[in-house]
Design a protein around this nucleic acid. Structure first.
Length: 618
DNA sequence: ATAGGGTTAG
């Protein structure tokens, strides 16, 4: 081809270049690569003006082979030294995940050492490929060589500061931007807002956001997704409304965060509104959006709709399968979930660690002990995945629930990695179910060493002592808790009503209809043969308040008051529904003849006609 | 004429 081509009369490349540029600027990347190919076929030879566009297309589509081919052409045409071409090549290698190749190019062409854009391309390449040390190191080199740092350098560098350890570095960068006078550029502000949010400094991020005079869509998205990532689902919905009131139109990124917050809060009505918007704007083909829809419907208890979204997706990602499988697990439908897992494998999708967490916990919730152990084995042997602490915790849970406590202990001892709090916590939970006080004390000592501030474990241990009538033990736990000075009760529940989410806290009286809610609660309690008690509730963490004021009861009472007879009631609880409340809701479902769906931290409970879907309450 | 950049899920 090459020799043949040189015989063909060379045609001026300018019209080709203009078209290449047009396509690339419209993000029609594969079209631009096709055009480049026909350009070669027609006998016109590309020049230094053709490559940047074509390389950019390879970068955008992550096509390393085509990119390297282009690199060869560049060498043949002798224009590697051309700054625009060199930078485009470096960027292409980075975007295709070949950072070493990019670095080699950078080192070999020393003229790039004075070009800020080359540093910028390489730094953002390091950042995108999680090479934090290389990124910061190159930034230092850049300054040593007196190459000027600009806002694009910052945009490439700031995203490395997304772990709390790097927040100081991030703040120093912020200071540097002020000195350079680029701290008011919108993109720079956006990247710092994101940085603070990802480090968990939600207030700092919000303060920066409030100070931005003209906010862009990404500015709004940065805070909305930051709230979502920090579990502030309520604030997400609030800010989303505010954003719309300013006339800013949400994009798929916004809607993904909003949907995930609806999932969190059980706000199906709001989620459905978002789905309408998704359809109206043609975002249905966006995999992120569809995955978020699946998870929203699943976590709102609407399995059929979740499956409906899943079934019509033209392209499913691993995340789509994982969300769907996890959703069957939460609903106690282990068979369907495991069948879907098999389907996934048959479809040639390689499982990852997360999907294994889903299938393993599905097995343990449904008592499929051996099936779970089999899968754990297959994970290591067949799929060559290194189990993490979360997988070990699942296996301990699997063995523990089945009453195989000794095996669970041996398993922990044989672990090649250090067990974390969740592993010992799973053992502690098993000891509660099977009333093994001695082992519980061992597990408890370990677990509070690893997670001293997790209140749930203290409550669990206290309840194990309660079950065995060990007054001294109960007292000891109380003292420990007092010493550690636990603050307010973290138990809360949500109910959605008329497109608004109502939040209830244990013993809380700040809800606008508190009077009515408590009256209804009293009424229900008179009807139910109430088990009075001030015992600490197992795992639900709502300590030292009477169980009769637990958040899920307030939510139930409110929902009965507000919704029409016959309507199903969905209550979301952040922790676990305690035994007392479980019994209470069961009885209420008979008295008021309503169906209750309660989603707690790990699964769904269905209450109807005095019965509950789960035999064993967790 | 041409290069480098910010937000997204289980």
């Amino acid at each position: 081809m090459a020799t043949g081509r040189s015989l063909v009369r060379r045609v001026a490349s300018t019209p080709w270049n203009a078209r290449l540029r047009e396509l690339a600027s419209q993000s029609l990347f594969s079209e631009s690569i096709t055009l480049y190919r026909s350009m070669l076929r027609s006998g016109s030879s590309p020049d230094a003006f053709s490559y940047p566009f074509t390389l950019k297309s390879c970068a955008a589509l992550s096509l390393p082979v085509s990119g390297q081919q282009l690199h060869c052409h560049v060498i043949r045409e002798g224009c590697v030294a051309e700054p625009f071409v060199l930078t485009a090549l470096i960027s292409m290698y980075c975007k295709c995940g070949l950072v070493e190749g990019a670095r080699k190019l950078f080192d070999e062409n020393t003229q790039s050492h004075q070009l800020g854009v080359c540093y910028n391309a390489l730094i953002s390449g390091y950042t995108a490929n999680a090479k934090v040390a290389d990124a910061t190191c190159l930034f230092r080199t850049m300054k040593e060589r007196c190459v000027s740092v600009d806002s694009v350098t910052m945009l490439g560098l700031v995203p490395v500061c997304t772990v709390p350890d790097y927040i100081w570095f991030g703040m120093s960068l912020h200071g540097e931007c002020v000195r350079l006078g680029i701290d008011s550029e919108l993109a720079v502000l956006n990247s710092f807002i994101t940085m603070y949010m990802k480090c968990g400094s939600v207030e700092s991020g919000r303060r920066l956001f409030d100070g931005v005079p003209v906010k862009g869509l990404i500015t709004w998205n940065a805070v909305i997704s930051g709230y979502a990532q920090n579990g502030l689902a309520y604030d997400v919905l609030e800010l989303y409304e505010e954003m719309k009131s300013y006339g800013v139109r949400p994009d798929p990124v916004t809607l993904v965060s909003v949907l995930s917050s609806c999932a969190h809060l059980g706000a199906q009505r709001i989620g459905q509104e978002v789905e309408k918007l998704v359809e109206a704007n043609g975002f249905v083909s966006n995999v992120f959006v569809s995955n978020a829809l699946i998870s929203m419907y699943a976590r709102c208890g609407n399995l059929a709709k979740a499956r409906g979204v899943f079934d019509v997706m033209p392209v499913r990602s691993l995340v789509s399968w994982t969300a769907m499988i996890g959703c069957y697990g939460m609903h106690g439908m282990a068979e369907t979930g495991l069948k879907l897992f098999d389907d996934m494998i048959r479809n040639g999708i390689r499982p990852d660690k997360t999907v294994f967490v889903m299938v393993l916990s599905t097995c343990s919730h449904s008592g499929l002990t051996n099936k779970g152990l089999e899968l754990f084995d297959a994970m290591k042997r067949e799929y060559k995945l290194e189990p993490g602490p979360e997988h070990y915790a699942c296996v301990v849970d699997l063995l523990g629930r089945a009453g195989r406590i000794d095996e669970a202990c041996e398993f922990i001892e044989s672990m090649p990695i250090e067990p974390d709090g969740a592993v010992w916590g799973a053992l502690l939970g098993a000891c509660k179910i099977h009333k093994n006080v001695d082992m519980a004390e061992v597990a408890f000592a370990k677990v509070i060493e690893l997670e001293p501030m997790n209140i749930g474990y203290y409550v669990l241990m206290s309840n194990i002592y309660t079950d065995s009538n060990n007054q001294e033990g109960i007292w000891r736990i109380r003292v420990m808790m007092r010493e550690r000075g636990f603050k307010k009760e973290p138990g809360y529940s949500y109910v959605e009503h008329k497109g608004r989410v109502h939040l209830f806290l244990a013993g809380d009286r700040s809800h606008e209809q508190t009077e009515e809610v408590y009256r209804m609660l009293d009424e229900l309690e008179t009807s139910v043969m109430e088990i009075e008690g001030n015992t600490d509730c197992d795992r639900c963490g709502e300590v030292s308040s009477s169980t009769r004021e637990h958040s899920e009861r307030l939510a139930v009472a409110f929902a009965i008051l507000k919704t029409s007879p016959g309507a199903e009631i969905l209550v979301i609880k952040n922790l676990r529904v305690c035994e007392d409340c479980h019994v209470f809701i069961k009885m209420v479902s008979k008295i008021v003849d309503r169906r209750f769906v309660v989603r707690d931290a790990s699964r769904f409970h269905y209450f109807e006609d005095g019965l509950c879907s789960c035999k064993d309450y967790w």
